[in-house]
Design a protein around this nucleic acid. Structure first.
Lengths: 330, 330
DNA sequence: TTGTAAGCGTTATCAC
DNA sequence: GTGATAACGCTTACAA
């Protein structure tokens, strides 16, 4: 693999001049510049990024941490981020944490070792106190996930409002027995706490009391959705509608409901979350809360780039709007 | 950011000894080793990967090139690859080519600049003659995609057999008017040529002549599928079944067909490809050709690891089996 | 078992 | 405009 010294030999100029050509410095004589360019071309020379990084340059690489890339929400998010990055000359490192604290730490180390100039985190496994120290090595932008600190830029959705919107829609459709499936836990401080509050608030406003039997926690997949339906069937008092935290759970639920000859939405109304392509294709079409994935991805990357170019930019929080997409499952 | 010299200062031993501790060399005295370990701990020291790479060490990083990460087939493939990599101490760089030749070349350069020790390509945009030279910088494994050369390891599926299987299934169900949707072109040498041949062969065997009007090329998305149905409706002579190259196209097709009050499979039978989670959820369930994604991903990474540890291993081709998953759309 | 020193490929500093 | 030279952080002969 050709290196700068090879270019020096072939072109007959000094290392510094070659470096200047590589980096597009303004004041170089035309002849030398061409000499160098020709030599580089001839040798198929590519600057060694490890060396540049070591030398303390920008790595022109950013990392995106996602919990699971097979989740369409995250693959679309990564896609949006990557596009903006590429347009700006950045490589995007996609890092899958698998919701593993250790793995997340390994990825945070990319910052320390200058393999990435900045990081976008779309999920957080470790406590913020653990993550915070890494910001001294490079900017971190939170996207989708958030923490209650002012020092970090956050691109988020108002999950409270999203859940509130969905539950309210069900209430307006006449439902009063509304079950709630969440990917997190139903606690005041844990994961998805905002959505929980949105659910509670919507019910409260309508004067409906929460039935704890109808709170189903830690549900993520299509299979989970199928199991949830079984649980519902076994209930003495059944809900007439279910709010779910993901289209996948909703899809599994709908699938199993149809198997058991329930009519949707008459016997059971279902509402999903994310508005994945899947939602439209189900029969009946799934009412869902659309997250503007492209926009939050784009914004996150833009904020990160701004921070990279201008480290003193004050951290901001952006909040993007949800949209309720009503189809025939409610 | 603490470096090796900081550790040297704090521990009081030499740089080489510190390095030996980092790399788990066998013969170090217990005391010194502990001294070093303690210092590293105290400083929060992480070896600088760029420096290690520059020094010519393994980067313990491999790259996977995919055309589009939002395509579930590829996100699941990446997931499988990444898991095996992680178990073996490798970081996985996910590279999205967006079917762009330039971008693919940029990723191939990772090998040149030692940012990645090896590469798995799940799609090929440039000609093999362009890609081949990069193999001198590190092993490349082809996964899913293939070329007709003996010098590169290939993990592939017999696409010919997959398509043949699906079309034959339709014929056995009594269909003789079978349309064909492909993501590629219907040419002898281009993309998806093997599937094309499988389709042709199955028809031939049944003594059915191909109707060129029913060959629909370059179809990829759900929206494409919807458009295809419109085309079918406008045909003077309509096919009774459609073989598609992807579950997404099939899903779009089914969606539009139902909108137009066609009964599936009676008015139109549909068969998909990939057996994505979606296939089960559609109504009626989509008959599909399952690709053993986990297996090919796992195998690809295993082959790459073998090649990394043992560069002289002769390149092999693995061919994994498809499986026809029959549901109610046929 | 440990330490010294050279070198990996760049770029920044300084001198000319 | 151009060229020496040192430095980035690490590993590995070689020497002790």
């Amino acid at each position: 693999m050709a290196n700068i010294s090879d270019v020096v030999r072939l072109s007959g100029v000094s290392k510094s001049t070659v470096s200047r050509v590589i980096n597009n410095y303004p004041h170089i004589s035309k002849e030398k510049k061409e000499l160098v360019l020709k030599a580089m071309e001839e040798l198929g020379y590519t600057p060694n990024l490890s060396a540049r990084r070591l030398r303390g340059q920008l790595s022109t690489t950013i990392g995106v941490i996602v919990p699971r890339i097979v989740n369409p929400f995250f693959s679309y998010l990564v896609d949006a981020i990557e596009k903006v990055g590429y347009q700006n000359g950045y490589q995007t490192l996609i890092c899958q944490s698998n919701e593993d604290k250790e793995k997340e730490l390994a990825f945070l180390n990319l910052l320390k070792t200058k393999q990435a100039d900045g990081l976008i985190m779309t999920s957080i496994e470790n406590d913020w106190e653990v993550i915070e120290p890494f910001t001294q090595f490079g900017p971190i932008v939170l996207c989708n996930e958030y923490v209650n600190v002012k020092s970090v830029p956050i691109i988020r959705l108002d999950q409270y409002k999203g859940a509130y919107m969905g539950v309210k829609h069900l209430i307006e459709k006449g439902h009063r027995k509304i079950a709630y499936c969440t990917g997190g836990l139903f606690t005041e401080f844990g994961k998805d706490k905002d959505r929980n509050q949105g659910y509670q608030r919507a019910l409260e406003e309508a004067g409906i009391k929460i039935n704890p039997n109808w709170i189903l926690v830690n549900q993520h997949t299509i299979e989970d959705g199928k199991r949830v339906l079984k649980l519902i069937l076994e209930m003495k008092e059944r809900p007439t509608a279910v709010f779910t935290g993901s289209d996948e759970v909703a899809a599994g639920l709908m699938f199993a409901a149809k198997r058991h000859n329930l009519t949707i939405p008459d016997d059971l109304a279902i509402i999903g979350f994310d508005d994945q392509p899947l939602a439209e294709l189900l029969d009946p079409g799934l009412t869902s809360i659309r997250q503007p994935i492209d926009q939050i991805g784009k914004k996150a990357m833009e904020v990160l780039l701004e921070l990279l170019n201008n480290p003193d930019t004050a951290p901001v929080t952006y909040e993007l709007p949800f949209e309720l997409v009503v189809r025939h499952s409610t």
